[in-house]
């Protein structure tokens, strides 16, 4: 009997506590800047580059997976060796630059599917720079770090897709 009473009073108490919960809670820092950068990054990467076969998407997905794995590795490294945000940005940027240059050399002289791909690449560069500037102020902001990684990934995908061989075009 005592247990039943206690249960009732717990249920009532819980309901009262739930009703008392505030509808709003303000974040401790301004999140708008990160949102704005995210919107800019997604807009720069949303331009269609051309239709490709599904096999090409599979290749892109594999690349994305590898980058994700390496990104997880970077996270792990940061945890184990105590790397701060600045060091992570530097490491990520230098790895990306090396990968990008290797691809550009590989496709040098090969016709691209779109004429304005270099302009799109520059726009993504500008987005990456804007994110890096924000990271300089807030080096440990994981949302910004992920945005930077996402922009870098979009650059790699762009270079790969516009240089797809003719037989892969529809």
């Amino acid at each position: 009997m005592k247990t039943t009473k206690q249960n009732v009073s717990f249920e009532q108490h819980l309901q009262q506590q739930i009703h008392k919960l505030p509808n709003e809670r303000m974040p401790e820092r301004d999140l708008w800047r990160g949102v704005e950068l995210g919107l800019e990054a997604s807009e720069s990467g949303s331009k269609p580059v051309g239709t490709v076969r599904s096999s090409w998407f599979a290749i892109a997905a594999s690349i994305a997976f590898l980058v994700s794995v390496s990104w997880l590795g970077v996270n792990q490294l940061a945890t184990e060796k105590g790397l701060d945000g600045n060091a992570l940005v530097q490491s990520l940027s230098s790895q990306h630059e090396a990968q990008k240059q290797a691809l550009l050399v590989q496709y040098d002289g090969q016709a691209a599917l779109t004429e304005n791909w270099q302009q799109q690449l520059s726009e993504l560069d500008a987005a990456a720079e804007a994110i890096k500037s924000a990271l300089a102020q807030d080096p440990n902001n994981t949302a910004l770090l992920r945005m930077l990684q996402n922009v870098y990934q979009q650059q790699i995908t762009l270079i790969e897709r516009v240089h797809a061989p003719k037989w892969q075009q529809i």
């Binding site: 974040p27 820092r29 990160g34 949102v35 995210g38 919107l39 997604s42 994981t142 949302a143 992920r146």
Partner: peptide, 10 residues
């Protein structure tokens, strides 16, 4: 929660 909030608005 801060990251997720940004993701929601993006």
């Amino acid at each position: 929660a801060e990251d997720a909030t940004q993701e929601v608005f993006i």
